[in-house]
Nucleic acid binder design. Structure first.
Length: 474
DNA sequence: TCGTCTCTCACGTTTGAACCGA
DNA sequence: ATCGGTTCAAACGTGAGAGACG
């Protein structure tokens, strides 16, 4: 069906356009761009920011299911600064927030050990890709159809995540006339702190459930609204809490309490890992609950040091989160530096498994040893938060880039070796794509890529021939 | 064996796109 | 060609219970 489907649901109605106000005035800060295609002034802002913040303050949770579940809120962004006539592709991937697994204990999140090995890494390609800059800037770009799954064997191209682990979406813009000639060297990455979430198979925090119900149209049936026909919103362990609350409104577990708890857990976490202070971020229960305490909140969030944090909060290229080893986080500091570019730098790069491209026939991604342009590195400060670009992959290691253009979620050690080696295929080739219009997703995985670059780079078609899902990462 | 923690599934409600006839 | 009603698939959280694990 219409390729447009995935764009913001009909701009016409459904979109109250809550906030367009985001067209934030680009602080022209970015360094100048050597060439138009190289522009460093691309800006991205998150739509529905208020909604995201509401969730973030409590500790966003996203359901992941076997068949795949949409996010709510879903990712919707505004882009500016693109060359109107140049074509770009938009990608989204989910980056582990840290190297831990969590558990919900009573009314707060606590650490529950190391994170599990990253499942097949997938990247969602916006169905409109590639499209001219004018198209992307025309209206908010929605990733409504992006789905999250906990099924490592998923064949639909959904993004695979681990339950009880924290992640945050990362948006990439790559200038490319078509999926076969992607200039990976020119891609830029953005992240928004308030979009971080904990993947769960069932909601843990009842406050999150309520927020979802109150804001997601499809959950209307569960709203109280006078006719409290259905009042629920509580799950297991918190039932009692809920009940009490109901019976005695005054008992409400205010946000504060909640935050308190969260904060608490954060501290645990901090303690657990190496401390490290970090600059806090305004809303996160994880990172520091906004209001009070901000001050010391810190570290909590990530094992990484402050530097890392910076990286994180400002959008940048998070060269991959190492999955579990905290120590690895230190590398961030380095990457962080302007030169960061290095995508591949230190941490080996990881090429994304471009998944899902529903409704886009035949698009595939490919990278070519492009002209490694190196965008001026604009070291953006964490404060640039609304979306400043931070990195461009290009410069770092051209060579590598050409093959492994994107991030490197794993530590250096894990990187290539891992991908390269075990290649392929334990997953059946992903056939679906080829014959159907819908469901055409391109997926490649690192191993594939590794293999690939062995021959030549990037030709999508080739890519598509590789096994769709591979466990090479295990 | 028992308890805890996760995950899964059927279910009723909503939304919205696709159909269809006037 | 347009309008209005109908149908149907997809999306949601619920809540019970299955499974895995210690």
């Amino acid at each position: 069906m219409l390729a447009s489907a995935s764009r913001a649901p009909a701009p016409p109605k459904t979109q109250p356009d809550l906030k367009h106000n985001f067209s934030i005035p680009p602080p022209a800060t970015m360094a100048g761009a050597p060439d138009p295609y190289h522009q460093g002034n691309i800006r991205m802002t998150l739509e529905d920011q208020e909604l995201w913040k509401s969730f973030h303050e409590i500790g966003t949770e996203m359901i992941i299911t076997k068949p795949g579940r949409r996010m709510f809120p879903h990712c919707k962004i505004n882009i500016s600064g693109l060359v109107p006539y140049a074509k770009y592709i938009l990608l989204v991937d989910m980056v582990p927030e840290d190297g831990f697994r969590y558990k919900w204990n009573k009314d707060k999140w606590e650490l529950a050990g190391k994170a599990e090995p990253q499942p097949p890494y997938r990247t969602y390609l916006h169905p409109d890709s590639p499209a001219p800059g004018s198209h992307w800037m025309k209206q908010p770009v929605s990733f409504l159809k992006l789905k999250l799954t906990n099924n490592a064997l998923d064949q639909h191209g959904h993004i695979i995540l681990h339950s009880m682990h924290r992640y945050h979406p990362r948006f990439h813009i790559v200038q490319a006339d078509d999926l076969y000639s992607v200039r990976w060297s020119v891609f830029q990455t953005f992240t928004f702190p308030e979009t971080s979430f904990t993947a769960v198979t069932a909601y843990q925090n009842t406050k999150i459930t309520k927020l979802k119900i109150d804001n997601n149209p499809f959950a209307k049936g569960f709203r109280d609204e006078g006719t409290n026909s259905k009042r629920r919103a509580s799950r297991g362990r918190s039932d009692t809490e809920h009940l009490a609350k109901k019976l005695n409104p005054t008992v409400k577990d205010s946000d504060q309490d909640r935050s308190q708890d969260l904060r608490h857990s954060c501290e645990d976490r901090a303690a657990l890992k190496e401390s490290g202070e970090v600059k806090e971020e305004r809303f996160s229960p994880w990172g520091g609950v906004s209001d009070r305490e901000s001050s010391h909140v810190l570290g909590q969030d990530s094992p990484v040091g402050s530097e890392a944090r910076d990286v994180y909060s400002s959008e940048q290229l998070v060269p991959g989160h190492s999955s579990y080893q905290p120590y690895r986080f230190h590398e961030y500091g380095k990457l962080q530096s302007p030169s960061s570019s290095s995508v591949g730098s230190g941490t080996g790069s990881r090429v994304p498994d471009i998944a899902t491209v529903p409704e886009h026939e035949g698009k595939a991604a490919a990278h070519e040893p492009g002209p490694t342009h190196c965008p001026p590195n604009l070291a953006s400060t964490p404060q640039d938060y609304p979306g400043v670009l931070n990195m461009a992959v290009g410069q770092a290691k051209p060579a590598m880039l050409s093959h492994h253009p994107l991030y490197a979620p794993y530590g250096p050690e894990q990187a290539l070796g891992q991908w390269g080696g075990a290649s392929s295929a334990q997953y059946p080739p992903a056939p679906p794509t080829h014959h159907h219009h819908h469901h055409h997703h391109l997926a490649t995985d690192y191993s594939t890529q590794a293999v690939h670059h062995g021959y030549h780079h990037g030709n999508v078609s080739d890519w598509s021939q590789y096994p769709l899902f591979s466990y090479s990462c295990w």
